[in-house]
């Protein structure tokens, strides 16, 4: 009875696609590549800083899916990094599991925890999830401190083996940088694909108007849950990567400061963009080094630099680049 308009209209006039390259966005990727390339060439301290930045980029990519693509708030993503990190640490030391197996187990634990928090709270209207995530961040920290028989409390766990599959291990600075760069690129590629898929559009629909999304048949609570699970999964992986790169884990590693740092990275980089988490993590990690010579005024200079970026690029660096490309294409 109901026929699709496509079957009754005489001809389809497809939209005119512009073929111009998104130059500004390409420039953002080029700058990121240059920064990572610098660290690869010079190694040493630069390699350490950039390795941490890349691990953060993984964490921030998850936050970006939940906050940027789906417009939801979570303050407790560090909890999932902790679950991933401690699972990897315990399983690869005490139980001598290979890194990939430990990381996978951590991922499963994180997803179960995220589901247990997200399933009940995401069906309620209001900010119950944000509150619950704040709580879980603190609870996970307490568990890491108190459950000494497994986590060794404040002492932490050391002697965690490096990243590796079978006989291949990433031990040197440069090997680690290469592995992390590949991980970050794969995730960016995945986010790009998600953005232009049915799933990604349902994220954007929930972000735009929950009421309208529901009217089009989208299950809003389930969509938010999927997004939250993705964010938790990426946080978990970043936690595992961290403990293997550093070789050591303690409760402080996954504290509230991690969430605050990640928030500034996602905003500086550009909420809801593909390149944002990487460039944001790189810039926020490098800036303190740039100002290190300034001694007392170092923190102030760092703060001012972040604020200036947000004033002149309110959508973040990749956000402004994207808007620039869109204007050129129009």
């Amino acid at each position: 009875m109901t026929s699709s308009p496509s079957t009754t209209l005489p001809e389809a006039r497809s939209a005119v696609q512009t073929t111009r390259l998104p130059l500004a966005t390409a420039a953002v990727w080029a700058v990121s590549a240059a920064i990572v390339g610098y660290a690869l060439i010079f190694g040493g301290y630069a390699a350490t800083i950039i390795s941490f930045a890349l691990i953060y980029a993984v964490f921030v990519s998850g936050l970006n899916v939940f906050m940027g693509l789906t417009a939801q708030v979570s303050f407790g993503q560090s909890a999932f990094a902790a679950i991933g990190g401690y699972s990897s640490a315990v399983l690869t030391t005490t139980y001598a599991w290979p890194p990939l197996a430990g990381m996978s187990a951590g991922l499963v634990f994180s997803l179960l925890a995220a589901w247990a928090i997200g399933f009940p709270t995401l069906r309620l209207k209001g900010h119950y999830l944000a509150m619950a995530t704040l709580a879980i961040g603190l609870i996970t920290y307490e568990i890491a401190v108190e459950w000494e028989s497994v986590t060794q409390g404040y002492l932490g766990i050391s002697g965690i083996p490096p990243l590796g599959i079978g006989p291949f291990e990433a031990v040197s600075d440069r090997q680690i940088l290469v592995v992390l760069s590949v991980v970050v690129l794969v995730i960016a590629f995945a986010v790009k694909r998600i953005q232009h898929s049915r799933l990604g559009r349902s994220f954007a629909a929930v972000a735009g108007s929950e009421e309208a999304a529901a009217t089009l048949g989208i299950n809003v609570a389930r969509t938010k849950l999927v997004s939250f699970l993705l964010a938790a999964g990426l946080a978990s992986i970043s936690g595992s990567l961290f403990v293997h790169v550093v070789g050591y884990v303690s409760p402080e590693v996954f504290g509230l400061h991690m969430v605050i740092l990640a928030f500034s990275m996602v905003y500086i980089g550009g909420l809801g963009t593909v390149a944002g988490p990487l460039i944001g993590a790189l810039i926020v990690s490098i800036l303190p080094e740039v100002f290190r010579g300034m001694k007392d005024s170092q923190d102030l200079a760092y703060g001012i630099a972040l604020i200036l970026i947000l004033i002149y690029a309110p959508k973040g660096i990749a956000g402004v680049a994207g808007a620039f490309d869109a204007r050129r294409a129009a």
Partner: peptide, 13 residues
């Protein structure tokens, strides 16, 4: 087209 199509994370990736 949400209701008339299907596919989640697997299809996206």
């Amino acid at each position: 087209f949400h209701l008339k199509t299907h596919g989640g994370l697997f299809a996206a990736l």
